[in-house]
Design a protein around this nucleic acid. Structure first.
Ligand code: MN
Ligand code: MN
Ligand code: MN
Ligand code: MN
Lengths: 242, 242
DNA sequence: TTATTTTATTAGGCAAGGCTAATTTATATA
DNA sequence: TATATAAATTAGCCTTGCCTAATAAAATAA
């Protein structure tokens, strides 16, 4: 009997992934409503599925007391995340898609089932540690590099930092970043914080000075300036977003 | 309105592909029963689906008179075939899967939807013309290189030829080929045909002499010896099967 | 050309994964 | 604490894609 005894449907995989992400990497209990919001479906549908996942021993779930992954569920969730992020790297590095296009395609590719596929892809890509959005890629055994990242709004005035990822992965945000010529690896200096509304004036290495909103600064993940510029824990060398 | 106005379900795509393959590249009318055999399901299920495909104007179908692709259906079928074969090349060339492993994974990958994906993959792979089984890959505009191939059993005694593909793609056949060290590009000389049962004695360039059954010889596609050894229309250089 | 066999179609159901509306539990508020 | 609100659950339906059994139509054989 292998670790993943019988394989999951796409829908089940999507539930496990969402439970993993919402429950901060699967540790915390979460509610049906939050799941339904993430999956853009109905709480009633969620409750249906939760029962199935309990039967398969992939989650713990007591009525009105929240949901959490079991060990077995966690392993599968990590595998899906691994596949998703590896495919994202492939799409960006090999097929030259841009930062904001890869996620949607990876949503489909992550559900392709084959016991060796993730590992072969991993090898082919040179064992990347981070995906194009700066998120760590779980290893075959389910470990994840931890990443030292803060949000831009917590960087002190006058300090430099380097972009390592985004919190919000919506394409509107990613496209805005593209417009500002900000990508993974971009060096940014936080010039000034405006107390009035939390806006932040930044200086972008390649471009010039710009002002961005608090919402923007809350969603841009950067290597904290105390660390040696983040280069070390980046698989990707600095590059533009296409 | 694009060529493919609303995208198909996996199941619909599989039906279109089967109708394409069984009806010799979509030209001939075929029966519900033959479709059900290919899809390993029930004729009644096939009739259900045929109605849906008629509604979507993807096939022509009159009760008890057989099924044929419309122009629209043909375009989609060719796209699925294109995706399938491109992914097979990727899996073999880049992820180092073997000849007999790629088909099953490509069955899943062919259903990943993204308008640019096939073309980007095509470019990344260097615009291959043939898939690992020697079948031609339709171009973005739906053209296919035609391939001059015969079955081994039609090669004349004493003539040399080169393997370009297989008719039967079952893994039992592919594994047998692997065992005999025969792959795309392998040079074979037909030494003798046994009249009794159609068995064929062949000499394999790399290995020695072997006898294979008529069934074997009927399923191995080779470039006919009159052609300049087939190298020209092969994207792949001769190689072993892993 | 009639009888038999094979193939195709229809009728009626089922499981998965959704939905809406109704109901029950929890939580928050007065 | 009693009440109002919000969240969770259940009940009852729907669509997709499949199935079996019954029926109709074609093809074949007598
Ligand atoms: Mn993603
Ligand atoms: Mn997904
Ligand atoms: Mn194939
Ligand atoms: Mn398929």
């Amino acid at each position: 009997m292998s670790i993943i005894s019988h394989s999951q449907t796409n829908s089940e995989e999507n539930y496990l992934k969402v439970i993993y992400h919402l429950g901060n990497e699967g540790k915390t209990k979460i509610s049906p409503t939050s799941i339904s919001e993430a999956l853009n479906n109905n709480p009633a549908s969620v409750v249906d599925m939760l029962k199935k996942l309990v039967d398969k021993k992939l989650i713990q779930y007591e009525k009105s007391k929240g949901v959490r992954l079991t060990g077995k569920g966690m392993k599968i969730a990590l595998l899906i995340v691994r596949r998703h992020r590896l495919w994202e790297v492939f799409l960006l590095e090999k097929l030259e898609y841009s930062w904001d296009e890869v996620h949607e395609i990876a949503e489909q590719l992550e559900h392709v089932h084959n016991p060796e596929l993730a590992d072969r892809l991993d090898k082919f890509l040179g064992f990347p540690q981070y995906d194009p959005h700066g998120d760590p890629i779980p290893t075959a055994s389910g470990e994840m590099a931890d990443i030292h990242k803060t949000i831009l709004s917590e960087v002190a005035e006058g300090k430099a930092c380097q972009v390592v990822g985004v919190k919000d992965t919506s394409s509107s945000f990613l496209q805005y970043l593209k417009k500002l010529d900000i990508g993974i690896g971009t060096k940014i200096t936080l010039v000034e914080k405006i107390p009035f509304d939390g806006s932040v004036i930044i200086s972008i290495k390649s471009g010039g000075k710009t002002t961005v909103s608090k919402m923007f600064a809350d969603n841009l993940l950067v290597a904290p300036p105390s660390l040696p510029q983040g280069e070390e824990h980046l698989h990707y060398s600095p590059r533009k977003i296409k």
